[in-house]
Amino acid sequence: MEVRTIKVFTTVDNINLHTQVVDMSMTYGQQFGPTYLDGADVTKIKPHNSHEGKTFYVLPNDDTLRVEAFEYYHTTDPSFLGRYMSALNHTKKWKYPQVNGLTSIKWADNNCYLATALLTLQQIELKFNPPALQDAYYRARAGEAANFCALILAYCNKTVGELGDVRETMSYLFQHANLDSCKRVLNVVCKTCGQQQTTLKGVEAVMYMGTLSYEQFKKGVQIPCTCGKQATKYLVQQESPFVMMSAPPAQYELKHGTFTCASEYTGNYQCGHYKHITSKETLYCIDGALLTKSSEYKGPITDVFYKENSYTTTIK
Rank of each mutant, 00 (worst) to 15 (best):
R4Y: 12
I6P: 05
I6H: 07
K7G: 14
V8A: 12
F9E: 11
F9N: 11
T10P: 07
T11L: 06
T11G: 10
D13C: 03
I15N: 14
I15D: 00
N16E: 10
N16I: 09
N16C: 09
T19G: 14
T19P: 14
T19D: 15
Q20N: 15
D23R: 12
D23N: 14
M24V: 10
M24F: 09
S25E: 10
S25L: 12
Y28R: 07
Y28P: 04
G29F: 08
G29P: 07
Q30C: 13
Q30M: 12
F32P: 04
F32G: 08
P34S: 10
P34G: 11
Y36R: 03
L37M: 13
L37W: 14
D38V: 11
D38W: 10
G39D: 11
V42I: 14
V42N: 06
V42A: 10
V42D: 01
T43M: 06
K44I: 15
K46Q: 10
H48V: 12
N49D: 14
S50T: 12
S50F: 14
H51T: 07
E52N: 12
G53F: 11
G53Y: 11
K54C: 15
T55E: 06
F56D: 04
Y57R: 08
Y57D: 07
L59Q: 10
L59K: 11
P60R: 07
N61M: 12
T64S: 13
T64W: 10
L65E: 10
R66N: 11
A69S: 11
F70K: 15
E71Q: 13
Y72G: 05
H74Y: 02
D77I: 05
D77N: 08
D77P: 05
D77E: 08
R83N: 08
M85A: 07
S86L: 09
A87R: 03
A87P: 07
L88N: 03
N89F: 13
N89K: 14
H90G: 13
T91N: 02
T91Q: 07
K92S: 11
K92H: 11
K92T: 11
W94E: 07
K95T: 13
Y96V: 04
P97L: 12
Q98H: 10
V99Q: 00
V99C: 08
L102Y: 06
T103D: 04
S104Q: 09
S104F: 07
A108N: 07
D109L: 06
D109Q: 15
N110T: 04
N110G: 09
A115G: 06
A115S: 11
L118H: 00
L118V: 05
L119I: 04
L121M: 09
L121N: 03
Q123L: 05
Q123W: 08
L126T: 01
L126C: 08
P130T: 09
P130E: 00
A132W: 04
A132N: 06
L133C: 03
Q134S: 11
Q134M: 09
A136D: 04
Y138M: 14
R139K: 14
R139H: 11
R139L: 11
R141V: 12
A142K: 14
A142P: 04
G143N: 05
G143S: 05
A145T: 03
A146N: 04
N147L: 03
N147I: 08
F148K: 02
C149S: 05
C149A: 08
C149E: 07
L151Q: 01
L153F: 05
Y155A: 05
C156N: 10
C156G: 03
N157M: 04
K158P: 01
T159I: 15
V160W: 04
E162D: 12
E162L: 00
E162C: 04
L163I: 06
G164Q: 05
D165H: 01
D165M: 05
D165V: 03
V166F: 08
R167A: 02
R167L: 05
R167Q: 06
M170G: 06
M170I: 05
M170H: 02
Y172C: 15
Y172K: 15
Y172S: 14
H176W: 14
N178Q: 12
N178P: 02
L179E: 01
S181E: 14
S181Q: 15
C182W: 01
C182T: 00
K183R: 13
K183L: 10
R184D: 00
R184A: 09
V188L: 09
C190A: 01
G194V: 02
Q196C: 09
Q196N: 11
Q196K: 14
Q197K: 09
T198A: 08
T198C: 13
T199Y: 09
T199D: 01
L200N: 06
K201D: 06
G202Q: 01
G202I: 00
V203K: 14
V203Q: 07
A205H: 01
V206M: 03
M207A: 03
Y208L: 01
Y208H: 10
G210R: 02
T211L: 13
T211I: 13
T211S: 08
K218H: 04
G220F: 02
G220V: 03
I223V: 15
T226S: 13
C227H: 05
G228L: 05
G228Y: 02
K229Q: 15
A231Y: 01
T232S: 06
Y234P: 01
Y234W: 07
Y234E: 02
L235T: 02
L235C: 05
V236F: 05
Q237C: 11
Q237G: 03
E239H: 09
E239D: 07
F242K: 01
F242Q: 05
V243G: 02
M244C: 06
M245H: 01
M245D: 01
S246Y: 01
P248F: 11
P249V: 04
P249D: 02
Y252V: 09
E253Y: 07
K255R: 10
G257C: 05
F259Y: 04
T260Q: 05
C261R: 01
C261L: 00
C261S: 01
A262Q: 00
A262V: 04
A262W: 00
S263I: 01
E264M: 04
E264T: 03
T266Q: 03
G267D: 01
N268C: 08
N268L: 02
N268D: 14
N268R: 06
Q270E: 15
Q270A: 13
C271V: 05
C271I: 11
H273N: 06
H276T: 02
I277V: 07
T278S: 14
T278H: 01
T278K: 05
L283S: 03
Y284W: 15
C285H: 06
I286V: 04
A289P: 04
L291E: 12
K293Q: 10
S294R: 09
S294I: 15
S294G: 05
S295T: 13
Y297N: 07
Y297V: 03
Y297P: 03
G299N: 02
P300W: 12
V304A: 01
V304N: 00
Y306R: 05
Y306P: 04
K307R: 13
S310P: 07
Y311W: 14
T312W: 08
K316I: 15
